[in-house]
Amino acid sequence: MGNPNFMNGVPELLVLRLLSRQEMYGYELVQAISLSTGNAISLGEGVVYPVLHALEEQGALKSRRKPVGGRIRVYYSVTAKGTKRLTGLAAEWNRIAGALNLSTLEARHVPTAT
């Protein structure tokens, strides 16, 4: 991840988007993030957990422990509150992305002084 301020909200958006499709455990989720972003966003894989825990404390996610192959895995899934948050975050990022696209297009068409 690059500039932390600029990336503010991105991990939440990715986590909520992916978990809204199916419940996942941490490792599975990080691999899904890498896959869905084409490795464009690479982060220390462990840093996903504070994001998951914070979202859970805010009520956007819920977790359950599930025994798998003699181990306990913590599976996360999105709550109704999380779905609402995802809609808000997605709309915000679409707005920013649209504005950036527009700005890029306009920059291409600015006539140069001769």
Binding site: G44, G46, V47, Y49, P50, V51, H53, A54
Partner: peptide
């Protein structure tokens, strides 16, 4: 290395509100 350095893992947790 893939898990992240102690530094980045600590910073991620310390940035979490209410930790």
């Amino acid at each position: 290395a893939r898990l992240g350095s102690d530094e980045s893992l600590a910073n991620a947790m310390l940035a979490k509100p209410g930790a």
